[in-house]
Write a protein that binds this DNA or RNA. Structure first.
Length: 416
RNA sequence: GGAGGGAUGGCCGAGCGGACGAAGGCGAUAGUCUUGAAAACUAUUGUAUGUAUUCCAUACCGUGGGUUCGAAUCCCACUCCCUCCGCCA
């Protein structure tokens, strides 16, 4: 959520932002709603103040004047109640719209409407020349390492069974990533994957992306699509000592996504599934330093991919392709031989104060409090890393062979 | 799942219808004293919003409603914590 003060102080930035996001919002109406609620509140508070004074008089009044005052106070009470009801309505009218206003886009993010306008800022790694590259499913299925058919019988489409060495690789990857991150000051964390709706509102997934989230209606809980949600909410309603920042977490969790509206997209294998495991980085940091922190998180992502010898490129995500909470986002896309293109394997966002304001996360230094910045980034999205590892290291006879240094990380030299 | 007890400021803890944004203590910060430190003493010590900008007003005593002229205090619902019983990876 943005600071509503922007309506008064810097409406031009807001206008520009909505334009870049290709959104049409009536700012005049919003400003009017904001002014109305302020006005009403001012009036209501004034009256409330009078009511309190009157109430105090009653306490010390003699019997005679007391009845008179009580009469007066009774009427006053009615009025105050009515006025505050109006204030509540005005607040709600404003907030219903305001909560949907997305974060301010960084001036450094490229313009554009869709991912086609994302700008490539770096390429790394050598793309091996593979004759007739097979896709990961074909390879893994034939080696008995993945079964999506049986999974779709049991659970539906976009689920999978992983077997044998792929399981071993997953656990090794996760443990390795945790170790790397821990060395860099990220506290290893296993957060809850079921959360209340508050955490989803706070992180900006609700109300806009609610259709992507699995719901447990009996218990009013939701399955998270990323550990970003419980990690961000970890410090909600807290005031952190600025001297302790940045506070970094490395969260491991299974992630659940409904993938509504993606029918027909990426239907092969485990690229886009309803359930996958992920190690996620999350940072609470000083607003002054969030750009720096963002670059740091990106550099960690690159480091991990480089160690795994996966060719990739980094893209600066354009305005129209940013989620509502992100101010700036870098995606890393790994080379996928079967598709002869780069596909997203990690993503890191600077959400500036957007989530922190909603979650009420503040910092305090020298008696001053301010809303913090939060950032998140993928360390290892297991499924997609497995795909990149399998496809980029496939051999001509449909097997997989890893380099010694990669094998050392993942604990497996060959898939055959 | 059943039966009880509880939730107050950074922490402990009093208050149980009016002078309470909240006693007292601890902690923290500043000052006095001291060669320095400790101790002692003194003062300060939450957050947010506003048509207020070192003043003032309003809100916040787990959350949301209600009763009342007036609620930390009474009533209802919810959430969380603790104890006991049952069940359980």
């Amino acid at each position: 959520m943005l600071d509503p003060a922007i309506l008064k102080n810097d409406i031009e930035s807001l206008e520009l932002n909505l334009e870049r996001r290709n959104l049409d919002v009536d700012l005049k109406e919003l400003t009017a709603l904001d002014e109305l609620r302020r006005e009403l509140r001012f009036e209501a508070e004034k009256l409330r103040s009078e009511q309190k004074t009157l109430g105090k008089q009653i306490a010390s009044a003699d019997e005679k004047t007391k009845n008179e005052l009580l009469d007066q106070a009774s009427q006053m009470s009615e009025k105050v109640k009515e006025l505050f009801e109006k204030v509540d309505v005005a607040d709600k009218n404003f907030m219903d719209i305001w909560i949907k206003i997305p974060n301010l886009i960084s001036t450094t993010s490229p313009d554009g409407i869709s991912d086609k306008e994302n700008s490539e800022i770096k390429k790394f790694g050598e793309i091996r020349n593979i004759n007739n590259p097979k896709d990961h499913l074909e390879i893994a299925e034939s080696l008995g390492l993945i079964d999506v058919q049986k999974a779709s019988e049991v659970s539906g489409s976009r689920f999978s069974y992983l077997f044998g060495d792929l399981v071993k690789i997953e656990f090794n990857l996760v443990l390795w990533a945790m170790q790397q991150l821990s060395d860099k000051g990220f506290k290893p964390t296993i957060p809850p994957v079921l959360v209340r709706e508050n955490a989803l509102y706070g992180t900006g997934f609700f109300p806009d992306d609610a259709e992507q989230v699995y719901e447990i209606p009996n218990d009013d809980l939701y399955l998270v699509g990323t550990s970003e949600v419980p990690l961000a909410a970890l410090h909600s309603n807290e005031i952190l000592d600025t001297a302790t920042l940045p506070i970094r977490y490395a969260g491991f969790s299974t992630c659940f996504r409904r993938e509504a509206g993606t029918y027909g997209k990426d239907t092969t294998g485990i690229f886009r599934v309803h359930q996958f495991d992920k190690v996620e980085m999350f940072s609470f940091c000083d607003p002054e330093k969030s750009e720096e922190e963002h670059k740091f998180i990106l550099s960690v992502e690159e480091e991990l991919l480089q160690a795994l010898e996966i060719p990739y490129r980094v893209v600066d995500v354009c305005a129209g392709d940013l989620g509502s909470s992100a101010s700036k986002k870098y995606d890393i896309e790994a080379w996928i031989p079967s598709q002869q293109t780069y596909r997203e394997v990690t993503s890191c966002s600077n959400t500036t104060d957007f989530q922190a304001r909603r979650l009420n996360i503040r910092g305090k230094a020298d008696g001053e409090t301010n809303v913090l910045h939060t950032l998140n980034g993928t360390a290892i999205a297991v499924g997609r890393i497995l795909i990149a590892l399998i496809e980029n290291n496939q051999t001509e006879d449909g097997k997989v062979e890893f380099s010694d240094s990669v094998a050392e990380i993942i604990g497996v030299k060959n898939l055959s």
